[in-house]
């Protein structure tokens, strides 16, 4: 009996100490870690739009975030709440558009928050709480970013996550205004290195480039070896000067544009997970964006990206 107590106490103490150490390190490193993640996301977004470093970014490129919330009112019925950036003179403000689940417009409320502050989740929440008073509750769903260049809508950037072979995979998609894929980047994953981990390699993720919306809805994974010329073409960062002429690029692009996704050798499940995840993200986004845009046009909301 005495031994059991000693063992129990010993184990509890070891767990407590280990927990305290991990917790302590987490508190110390959390801020720096979040900042790094934020920087990495920014860099990924610009990279997907084709700007390799900050110097190339044109001055009139603007990134506007649309935040989606699920609103539940006192009686338990659910609504969608979109925080949409609007132009107020020269300033940018936010309105909250309340839609029912079918996408029909219900109400519009001005939210007192600047775009810089809106980036912080707690700031957004306190601003929303000022308009949505209890018993109405709300929770954050997702974010989509609209990139505009001058007056032109350049692309949508979608951060998202889906289930991989082991845990969730965080990815960022860039779509053109008609929902075709401009680029895909994997932000975070825990797939096995050398197998599923290859999803972050250019020869896999660049296969999604240039696929149109119609093609994506029918996209499959095929278990065929990746052709050598296509692999060379996909690994853009390894291109040597003059490796491909303009005509060659055009032919290869055309040849493989409508092909399905070639699975990674030894990681069919991860390849399939990414393909299905991307398909799901795009399908849902295209549907939601369609509904939201109809409301914005009908209600004459001065959204900044129109």
């Amino acid at each position: 009996m005495k031994q059991i107590i000693r063992i129990t106490i010993g184990l509890v103490i070891s767990c407590l100490v280990a927990g305290a150490v991990m917790g302590g390190v987490f508190t110390v490193t959390d801020k720096a870690k979040k900042r790094n993640e934020h920087l990495a996301v920014q860099e990924t977004m610009l990279g997907l739009l084709g700007y390799k470093d900050a110097k190339q970014v044109p001055a009139d490129l603007k990134l506007y975030s649309i935040y989606r919330y699920i609103i539940t009112d006192g009686s338990g019925s659910q609504y969608l709440g979109y925080l949409v950036p609007v132009a107020e003179g020269n300033e940018t403000g936010y309105v909250l558009l309340k839609l029912d689940l079918q996408g029909k417009f219900i109400s519009k409320k001005n939210i007192d928050i600047s775009p810089e502050k809106a980036r912080e989740a707690p700031e957004r929440e306190s601003a929303l709480k000022a308009v949505l008073k209890p018993p109405i509750s709300f929770r954050y769903a997702d974010e989509a970013i609209v990139a505009t260049l001058g007056k032109k809508r350049l692309a949508y950037l979608l951060p998202g996550e889906f289930l991989g072979f082991k845990t969730t995979i965080k990815a960022m998609l860039a779509l053109d205004p008609s929902f075709g894929i401009v680029g895909l980047d994997i932000l975070e994953h825990e797939e096995d290195p050398g197998l599923g981990g290859e999803i972050e390699q250019e020869y896999f993720k660049n296969q999604f480039k240039d696929k149109s919306y119609d093609r994506i809805t029918k996209l499959k994974v095929i278990k065929e070896p990746l052709p050598d010329e296509y692999k060379k073409y996909l690994e853009k960062s390894k291109w040597q000067k003059g490796a491909f002429s303009k005509e060659q690029i055009a032919t290869i692009r055309k040849k493989y544009q409508d092909k399905d996704i070639y699975a990674i050798t030894g990681a069919t499940i991860s390849s399939k997970a990414v393909t299905d995840g991307v398909k799901g993200m795009i399908r849902k986004f295209a549907y939601r964006m369609g509904k939201l845009e109809a409301v914005i046009v009908n209600e004459k909301i001065p959204a900044v990206f129109l």
Partner: peptide, 30 residues
């Protein structure tokens, strides 16, 4: 370390170091 709980203790120690290294790398050496 009590001899009868040494294996769980090892696992705890390894897990702690893995977490610490992971967090420190993420924060300071991205």
């Amino acid at each position: 370390i009590h001899p009868r709980i040494r294996i769980p203790t090892y696992t705890l120690v390894i897990a702690t170091w893995v977490t610490v290294i992971d967090l420190v790398l993420a924060a300071y050496v991205p």
